[in-house]
Protein backbone atom coordinates (compact mmCIF):
# COMPACT_ATOMS: atom_id res chain seq x y z
CA UNK A 1 0.00 0.00 0.00
CA UNK A 2 2.87 2.33 0.77
CA UNK A 3 4.15 2.42 -2.81
CA UNK A 4 0.70 2.72 -4.36
CA UNK A 5 -0.18 5.74 -2.27
CA UNK A 6 2.83 7.68 -3.56
CA UNK A 7 1.52 10.23 -6.07
CA UNK A 8 4.55 9.81 -8.33
CA UNK A 9 3.94 6.14 -9.00
CA UNK A 10 1.15 6.87 -11.48
CA UNK A 11 3.25 8.77 -13.96
CA UNK A 12 5.88 6.01 -13.88
CA UNK A 13 3.21 3.33 -14.38
CA UNK A 14 1.74 5.34 -17.27
CA UNK A 15 5.22 5.65 -18.84
CA UNK A 16 5.74 1.90 -18.50
CA UNK A 17 2.35 1.15 -20.06
CA UNK A 18 3.07 3.43 -23.02
CA UNK A 19 6.48 1.76 -23.43
CA UNK A 20 4.92 -1.71 -23.34
CA UNK A 21 2.24 -0.72 -25.86
CA UNK A 22 4.86 0.45 -28.37
CA UNK A 23 6.91 -2.70 -27.92
CA UNK A 24 3.73 -4.74 -28.30
CA UNK A 25 3.29 -3.21 -31.74
CA UNK A 26 6.88 -3.82 -32.82
CA UNK A 27 6.91 -7.21 -31.02
CA UNK A 28 9.89 -6.22 -28.91
CA UNK A 29 12.14 -4.83 -31.63
CA UNK A 30 13.90 -1.55 -30.94
CA UNK A 31 13.37 -1.70 -27.16
CA UNK A 32 16.83 -0.34 -26.41
CA UNK A 33 16.67 2.45 -29.00
CA UNK A 34 13.26 3.53 -27.78
CA UNK A 35 14.37 3.68 -24.16
CA UNK A 36 17.47 5.61 -25.21
CA UNK A 37 15.45 8.15 -27.20
CA UNK A 38 12.94 8.53 -24.36
CA UNK A 39 15.74 9.18 -21.88
CA UNK A 40 17.39 11.74 -24.20
CA UNK A 41 14.29 13.75 -25.00
CA UNK A 42 12.74 13.14 -21.61
CA UNK A 43 15.81 14.67 -19.96
CA UNK A 44 15.10 18.12 -21.43
CA UNK A 45 11.48 18.03 -20.28
CA UNK A 46 12.58 16.71 -16.90
CA UNK A 47 15.09 19.51 -16.27
CA UNK A 48 12.67 22.34 -17.12
CA UNK A 49 9.99 20.39 -15.25
CA UNK A 50 12.13 20.31 -12.10
CA UNK A 51 12.48 24.09 -12.22
CA UNK A 52 8.79 24.62 -12.89
CA UNK A 53 7.99 22.22 -10.05
CA UNK A 54 9.92 24.37 -7.58
CA UNK A 55 7.99 27.47 -8.64
CA UNK A 56 4.60 25.70 -8.58
CA UNK A 57 5.47 24.45 -5.09
CA UNK A 58 5.52 28.10 -3.99
CA UNK A 59 1.75 28.09 -4.04
CA UNK A 60 -1.25 29.16 -6.11
CA UNK A 61 -0.52 31.69 -8.84
CA UNK A 62 3.18 30.90 -8.97
CA UNK A 63 4.24 29.68 -12.38
CA UNK A 64 7.01 30.77 -14.72
CA UNK A 65 5.75 31.49 -18.23
CA UNK A 66 9.15 32.77 -19.37
CA UNK A 67 10.65 29.27 -19.64
CA UNK A 68 10.71 29.10 -23.47
CA UNK A 69 12.10 32.64 -23.85
CA UNK A 70 14.78 31.96 -21.24
CA UNK A 71 15.81 28.75 -22.99
CA UNK A 72 16.08 30.52 -26.33
CA UNK A 73 17.93 33.54 -24.95
CA UNK A 74 20.45 31.48 -22.99
CA UNK A 75 21.08 29.13 -25.91
CA UNK A 76 21.40 31.97 -28.41
CA UNK A 77 23.86 33.99 -26.36
CA UNK A 78 25.89 30.93 -25.35
CA UNK A 79 26.22 29.66 -28.91
CA UNK A 80 27.06 33.10 -30.19
CA UNK A 81 29.83 33.47 -27.61
CA UNK A 82 31.24 30.03 -28.42
CA UNK A 83 31.08 30.65 -32.16
CA UNK A 84 31.76 26.97 -32.93
CA UNK A 85 35.32 27.37 -31.58
CA UNK A 86 36.64 24.21 -29.94
CA UNK A 87 37.33 24.34 -26.21
CA UNK A 88 34.74 27.01 -25.46
CA UNK A 89 32.09 24.67 -24.01
CA UNK A 90 32.73 25.87 -20.46
CA UNK A 91 32.53 29.52 -21.52
CA UNK A 92 29.18 28.80 -23.15
CA UNK A 93 27.90 27.01 -20.07
CA UNK A 94 28.92 29.88 -17.80
CA UNK A 95 27.21 32.38 -20.12
CA UNK A 96 24.03 30.28 -20.26
CA UNK A 97 23.90 29.94 -16.47
CA UNK A 98 24.63 33.64 -16.07
CA UNK A 99 21.75 34.48 -18.43
CA UNK A 100 19.50 32.22 -16.38
CA UNK A 101 20.59 33.93 -13.19
CA UNK A 102 19.93 37.38 -14.65
CA UNK A 103 16.52 36.36 -15.99
CA UNK A 104 15.56 34.94 -12.60
CA UNK A 105 16.57 38.15 -10.82
CA UNK A 106 14.66 40.24 -13.37
CA UNK A 107 11.52 38.10 -13.06
CA UNK A 108 11.57 38.26 -9.31
CA UNK A 109 12.26 42.00 -9.31
CA UNK A 110 9.08 42.50 -11.35
CA UNK A 111 7.12 40.30 -8.98
CA UNK A 112 8.47 41.85 -5.81
CA UNK A 113 8.97 45.53 -6.57
CA UNK A 114 6.07 46.00 -8.96
CA UNK A 115 3.85 43.50 -7.10
CA UNK A 116 2.79 41.95 -10.40
CA UNK A 117 1.10 38.54 -10.36
CA UNK A 118 3.88 36.07 -11.35
CA UNK A 119 1.92 34.84 -14.37
CA UNK A 120 1.74 38.35 -15.83
CA UNK A 121 5.25 39.36 -14.76
CA UNK A 122 6.95 36.35 -16.36
CA UNK A 123 4.72 36.64 -19.42
CA UNK A 124 5.54 40.31 -20.03
CA UNK A 125 9.23 39.79 -19.29
CA UNK A 126 9.40 36.81 -21.63
CA UNK A 127 8.45 39.12 -24.51
CA UNK A 128 11.51 41.22 -23.71
CA UNK A 129 13.78 38.15 -23.52
CA UNK A 130 12.40 36.95 -26.82
CA UNK A 131 13.26 40.29 -28.42
CA UNK A 132 16.77 40.16 -26.97
CA UNK A 133 17.25 36.71 -28.49
CA UNK A 134 15.96 37.85 -31.89
CA UNK A 135 18.16 40.93 -31.81
CA UNK A 136 21.30 39.07 -30.80
CA UNK A 137 21.33 36.33 -33.38
CA UNK A 138 19.27 37.71 -36.29
CA UNK A 139 18.11 34.30 -37.35
CA UNK A 140 21.59 32.90 -37.82
CA UNK A 141 22.01 29.34 -36.75
CA UNK A 142 25.42 28.96 -35.12
CA UNK A 143 26.61 25.42 -34.68
CA UNK A 144 27.83 24.30 -31.26
CA UNK A 145 31.52 23.35 -30.93
CA UNK A 146 31.96 19.75 -32.03
CA UNK A 147 33.16 18.59 -28.60
CA UNK A 148 30.05 19.97 -26.95
CA UNK A 149 27.77 18.51 -29.62
CA UNK A 150 29.44 15.14 -29.09
CA UNK A 151 28.86 15.42 -25.36
CA UNK A 152 25.19 16.37 -25.74
CA UNK A 153 24.44 13.52 -28.12
CA UNK A 154 26.84 11.05 -26.54
CA UNK A 155 26.38 8.33 -23.94
CA UNK A 156 28.06 7.14 -20.79
CA UNK A 157 27.52 3.65 -19.33
CA UNK A 158 24.79 3.09 -21.91
CA UNK A 159 22.71 6.09 -20.88
CA UNK A 160 22.58 9.41 -22.76
CA UNK A 161 24.75 12.10 -21.19
CA UNK A 162 21.82 14.52 -21.04
CA UNK A 163 19.90 11.92 -19.03
CA UNK A 164 22.80 11.73 -16.56
CA UNK A 165 22.64 15.51 -16.19
CA UNK A 166 18.88 15.32 -15.67
CA UNK A 167 19.18 12.49 -13.14
CA UNK A 168 21.92 14.31 -11.26
CA UNK A 169 19.84 17.47 -11.04
CA UNK A 170 16.79 15.46 -9.96
CA UNK A 171 18.78 13.97 -7.10
CA UNK A 172 20.13 17.39 -6.11
CA UNK A 173 16.62 18.87 -6.12
CA UNK A 174 15.27 15.92 -4.19
CA UNK A 175 17.96 16.17 -1.51
CA UNK A 176 17.53 19.93 -1.26
CA UNK A 177 13.75 19.63 -0.93
CA UNK A 178 13.70 16.74 1.50
CA UNK A 179 16.82 17.22 3.54
CA UNK A 180 17.79 20.88 3.57
CA UNK A 181 16.41 23.79 5.54
CA UNK A 182 15.83 25.69 2.32
CA UNK A 183 13.66 22.86 0.95
CA UNK A 184 11.57 22.81 4.12
CA UNK A 185 11.22 26.59 3.88
CA UNK A 186 10.05 26.26 0.29
CA UNK A 187 7.41 23.67 1.18
CA UNK A 188 6.27 25.70 4.19
CA UNK A 189 5.94 28.82 2.03
CA UNK A 190 3.90 26.88 -0.50
CA UNK A 191 1.57 25.44 2.10
CA UNK A 192 0.79 28.70 3.80
CA UNK A 193 2.82 31.79 3.05
CA UNK A 194 1.44 33.80 5.97
CA UNK A 195 2.02 31.05 8.48
CA UNK A 196 5.52 30.52 7.10
CA UNK A 197 6.33 34.21 7.45
CA UNK A 198 5.04 34.30 11.01
CA UNK A 199 7.12 31.22 11.79
CA UNK A 200 10.22 33.14 10.79
CA UNK A 201 10.79 31.74 7.31
CA UNK A 202 12.46 34.37 5.08
CA UNK A 203 9.61 34.02 2.60
CA UNK A 204 10.79 36.61 0.08
CA UNK A 205 14.31 35.17 -0.03
CA UNK A 206 12.87 31.71 -0.64
CA UNK A 207 10.70 33.04 -3.47
CA UNK A 208 13.61 34.94 -5.01
CA UNK A 209 15.88 31.88 -4.99
CA UNK A 210 13.11 29.74 -6.45
CA UNK A 211 12.53 32.08 -9.37
CA UNK A 212 16.29 32.18 -9.96
CA UNK A 213 16.45 28.37 -9.88
CA UNK A 214 13.75 27.89 -12.48
CA UNK A 215 15.44 30.38 -14.80
CA UNK A 216 18.84 28.70 -14.35
CA UNK A 217 17.28 25.28 -15.04
CA UNK A 218 15.60 26.65 -18.17
CA UNK A 219 18.85 28.25 -19.32
CA UNK A 220 20.75 25.00 -18.82
CA UNK A 221 18.09 23.11 -20.78
CA UNK A 222 18.35 25.65 -23.58
CA UNK A 223 22.13 25.25 -23.67
CA UNK A 224 21.94 21.45 -23.73
CA UNK A 225 19.08 21.33 -26.24
CA UNK A 226 20.87 23.69 -28.63
CA UNK A 227 24.04 21.59 -28.38
CA UNK A 228 21.98 18.43 -28.87
CA UNK A 229 20.10 19.66 -31.93
CA UNK A 230 22.97 21.44 -33.67
CA UNK A 231 22.16 25.07 -32.89
CA UNK A 232 19.76 27.49 -31.25
CA UNK A 233 16.50 28.33 -32.97
CA UNK A 234 14.10 31.08 -32.01
CA UNK A 235 11.21 28.69 -31.52
CA UNK A 236 13.25 25.98 -29.80
CA UNK A 237 11.58 26.55 -26.43
CA UNK A 238 8.01 26.85 -27.66
CA UNK A 239 6.77 23.40 -26.78
CA UNK A 240 8.42 23.47 -23.36
CA UNK A 241 6.00 25.98 -21.85
CA UNK A 242 3.09 23.58 -21.75
CA UNK A 243 5.44 20.62 -21.34
CA UNK A 244 7.06 22.02 -18.20
CA UNK A 245 3.68 22.54 -16.51
CA UNK A 246 2.29 19.24 -17.77
CA UNK A 247 5.15 17.10 -16.43
CA UNK A 248 4.82 18.71 -12.99
CA UNK A 249 1.11 17.99 -12.76
CA UNK A 250 1.13 14.58 -14.41
CA UNK A 251 4.04 13.78 -12.09
CA UNK A 252 1.77 14.15 -9.09
CA UNK A 253 2.91 17.45 -7.60
CA UNK A 254 0.08 19.51 -6.21
CA UNK A 255 -0.80 22.44 -8.46
CA UNK A 256 -1.95 24.22 -5.29
CA UNK A 257 1.65 24.17 -4.08
CA UNK A 258 3.38 23.02 -0.94
CA UNK A 259 3.89 19.49 -2.17
CA UNK A 260 6.37 18.34 -4.78
CA UNK A 261 7.41 15.15 -6.38
CA UNK A 262 10.82 14.72 -7.94
CA UNK A 263 10.54 11.13 -9.26
CA UNK A 264 7.13 11.96 -10.71
CA UNK A 265 8.64 14.68 -12.90
CA UNK A 266 10.98 12.16 -14.51
CA UNK A 267 8.20 9.59 -14.88
CA UNK A 268 5.96 12.20 -16.51
CA UNK A 269 8.74 13.45 -18.80
CA UNK A 270 9.32 9.91 -20.09
CA UNK A 271 5.58 9.38 -20.37
CA UNK A 272 5.03 12.54 -22.40
CA UNK A 273 7.67 11.45 -24.91
CA UNK A 274 6.51 7.84 -25.01
CA UNK A 275 2.86 8.68 -25.50
CA UNK A 276 3.73 10.72 -28.59
CA UNK A 277 5.94 7.89 -29.91
CA UNK A 278 3.17 5.42 -29.18
CA UNK A 279 0.60 7.41 -31.13
CA UNK A 280 3.12 7.86 -33.93
CA UNK A 281 3.86 4.17 -34.15
CA UNK A 282 0.15 3.42 -34.25
CA UNK A 283 0.00 5.75 -37.25
CA UNK A 284 -1.98 8.61 -35.70
CA UNK A 285 -1.83 11.96 -37.48
CA UNK A 286 -0.81 15.18 -35.73
CA UNK A 287 -4.42 16.12 -34.98
CA UNK A 288 -5.39 12.80 -33.42
CA UNK A 289 -2.10 12.73 -31.51
CA UNK A 290 -2.79 16.10 -29.88
CA UNK A 291 -6.37 15.21 -29.01
CA UNK A 292 -5.27 11.97 -27.37
CA UNK A 293 -2.36 13.63 -25.54
CA UNK A 294 -4.73 16.21 -24.08
CA UNK A 295 -7.30 13.59 -23.16
CA UNK A 296 -4.65 11.51 -21.43
CA UNK A 297 -3.39 14.51 -19.41
CA UNK A 298 -6.93 15.27 -18.24
CA UNK A 299 -7.56 11.59 -17.56
CA UNK A 300 -4.50 11.40 -15.31
CA UNK A 301 -5.55 14.54 -13.44
CA UNK A 302 -9.03 13.09 -12.91
CA UNK A 303 -7.58 9.74 -11.79
CA UNK A 304 -5.32 11.54 -9.34
CA UNK A 305 -8.23 13.56 -7.95
CA UNK A 306 -10.57 10.60 -7.37
CA UNK A 307 -7.75 8.79 -5.57
CA UNK A 308 -7.30 11.85 -3.39
CA UNK A 309 -11.01 11.94 -2.53
CA UNK A 310 -10.97 8.27 -1.48
CA UNK A 311 -7.91 8.79 0.69
Amino acid sequence: MTVLTKPWIWSCVAAAVAYALILGLTSGRGAGELAYAALSFGAFAAIVGLGQMLVITLGPGNVDLSVPATMTLAATLALKAMGTDPGTAMLGLVIALFVGFGVGIANYALIYFLRLPPIIATLAASLVYQSLAIWSNRGLRIKPPSGLADFATGRFLGLPNVAWVGLFLAIVVWVVLERSVWGRWLLATGQNMRAARLAGVPVELVRALTYISVAVFSALTGYLLASFSGGAALNMGAEYLLMSIAVVVVGGSSIAGGNSNVPGVWGAALFMFLVVSMLNSYGAGAGVRNVLTGTIIIGIVIAASTRRVRA
Binding site: I245, V249, I255
Partner: peptide, 15 residues
Amino acid sequence: PAIVVTLGMSFVWGG
Protein backbone atom coordinates in the same frame (compact mmCIF):
# COMPACT_ATOMS: atom_id res chain seq x y z
CA PRO B 1 -7.11 22.48 -11.04
CA ALA B 2 -8.48 24.53 -13.93
CA ILE B 3 -5.00 25.52 -15.11
CA VAL B 4 -4.14 21.87 -15.82
CA VAL B 5 -7.47 20.81 -17.29
CA THR B 6 -7.45 23.75 -19.69
CA LEU B 7 -3.82 22.99 -20.49
CA GLY B 8 -4.89 19.49 -21.51
CA MET B 9 -7.85 20.90 -23.41
CA SER B 10 -5.53 23.17 -25.37
CA PHE B 11 -4.02 20.01 -26.89
CA VAL B 12 -7.50 18.67 -27.61
CA TRP B 13 -8.76 21.86 -29.30
CA GLY B 14 -5.48 22.25 -31.19
CA GLY B 15 -5.64 18.66 -32.36
